[in-house]
């Protein structure tokens, strides 16, 4: 298992998005979120983006007001995980069109869906930059036709 979880935190420590790839009981999830919020927010700008956290590593990166935090296995490639986070942000940026924190808050469904195209089971599944958006577009199209069907029904 490469990525164990991805959590988006605002600068104020508010959770914006969570995605768990391992089955962790709710209690532990909240604990993890609490602890890593404290750790990540206390980091200053000129520090490295890798942290050791219990038996795993935290990879985090800040984009504007959002921290993207990923928990990965100890022996995983830290640089690659940073790359994945970056890829995710890129894709969101394209999909939303200049993404900002509010976009993610209000359309979290889409954010999760993009993540779903990118990562399955904690493993990066799509390394192509275009096909994620393609699938997203197809989904959207399907939904709108659904709605149109609705009108004509």
């Amino acid at each position: 298992m490469a990525i164990r979880y991805i959590i988006l935190l605002s600068r104020q420590g508010k959770v914006r998005l969570t995605k768990w790839y391992t089955a962790i009981p709710q209690k532990d999830r909240l604990k993890i979120i609490r602890e890593l919020t404290a750790i990540v927010l206390s980091r200053r700008a000129k520090m490295c983006n890798v942290l050791e956290y219990k038996d795993s590593k935290l990879i985090y990166r800040r984009y504007a007001s959002l921290f993207f935090v990923a928990g990965i296995d100890n022996n995983d490639n830290e640089l690659l995980s940073l790359e994945i986070i970056h890829r995710y942000v890129e894709q969101m940026d394209k999909s939303y069109g200049n993404v900002c924190e509010l976009d993610i808050i209000y359309d979290f469904e889409r954010a999760l869906s993009i993540l779903d195209q990118l990562i399955v089971n904690g493993e990066i599944i799509e390394s192509s930059k275009t096909s994620v958006l393609k699938t997203m577009a197809q989904q959207q199209q399907l939904e709108t036709t659904d709605e149109l069907d609705d009108y004509f029904a």
């Binding site: 768990w20 009981p25 469904e109 869906s113 989904q139 939904e143």
Partner: peptide, 20 residues
Amino acid sequence: NKFQHKRIGYLAAIQILTRD
């Protein structure tokens, strides 16, 4: 039957049902 609903359903299943 609607894809839109299905998608929400699956999303919820992944997010909520995995917990317990």
